Computed example of a mutant assay.
Amino acid sequence: MTGDLTLYTNPRSRGRIARWMIEETGAAYDVVALDYGAAMVAPAYRAINPMMKVPAIVHHGRVVTETAAICAYLADSFPDAELAPLPEERADYYRWLFFAAGPLEAAITNRALGVEPDAEQQRMAGYGDFDRAVAVIDQAVAHMPYIAGDRFTAADVYLGSQLMWFTQFGLVPRTEAIMAYIARLDRRPAHQRASELDDALIAESSPQAVD
């Protein structure tokens, strides 16, 4: 146990995003894998995240929840990894990180749940409508190699993870720009390491086949 940084996660959750982000930093960390049953609602974990959701991290005794916040926090906490924005990247970095965590995820979640706001309701919904939100992100990733410019940042970990997941399940269109963006991110060694570690956790927790 390293003690300085602990990731609370489930390999079938947004915890995969936090794992990827930690792997990008190169930091040593411990992992506490929680199931969706008793462990996630137990008092010990509720003291860390009262939402009873993963991921969460504890770094030097400080708790951070919410996946986009975890990505931004780790980028700031491990500056040598160069995942935080440069001054000229900050506008796009914060714009698209919060767009992904807010309007984009809300639009996709509502679509998956069968919720389609009518014209009047679209004024209240931060994303307007699904097609608009997806078109905006499609245009954004078409213009630059990474979401904040020419350099990979923590914002790409969060947005890229969303697009990887949602295109896999048909919840976001597999446009040429989106798939090219995903392909660039998928080649990153830290993403591959994180995926292998989480896939191994899934394999360990899955029932073994019986002949």
Score class of each variant (00 low, 15 high):
residue 42 A to P: 00
residue 52 M to K: 14
residue 53 K to H: 05
residue 54 V to S: 14
residue 59 H to R: 10
residue 60 H to K: 12
residue 61 G to V: 10
residue 65 T to P: 04
residue 78 F to M: 09
residue 78 F to G: 04
residue 79 P to Y: 07
residue 83 L to Q: 06
residue 84 A to H: 11
residue 86 L to P: 03
residue 87 P to G: 00
residue 90 R to I: 05
residue 91 A to T: 10
residue 98 F to D: 03
residue 99 F to G: 00
residue 102 G to D: 14
residue 104 L to N: 09
residue 104 L to R: 14
residue 105 E to L: 07
residue 105 E to V: 11
residue 106 A to N: 13
residue 111 R to W: 08
residue 112 A to M: 12
residue 114 G to L: 00
residue 115 V to E: 06
residue 116 E to I: 13
residue 118 D to W: 09
residue 119 A to C: 02
residue 120 E to Y: 05
residue 121 Q to P: 15
residue 123 R to Y: 09
residue 123 R to M: 10
residue 123 R to N: 11
residue 124 M to A: 11
residue 130 F to A: 02
residue 133 A to S: 12
residue 135 A to E: 15
residue 135 A to D: 15
residue 143 H to Y: 03
residue 146 Y to T: 01
residue 146 Y to F: 15
residue 147 I to F: 10
residue 147 I to E: 07
residue 147 I to K: 08
residue 149 G to S: 10
residue 149 G to W: 08
residue 150 D to Q: 13
residue 151 R to S: 12
residue 151 R to H: 15
residue 155 A to Y: 08
residue 156 D to K: 10
residue 156 D to N: 11
residue 158 Y to L: 03
residue 158 Y to D: 00
residue 159 L to Q: 09
residue 160 G to V: 12
residue 166 F to M: 08
residue 172 V to P: 06
residue 174 R to V: 02
residue 176 E to Q: 13
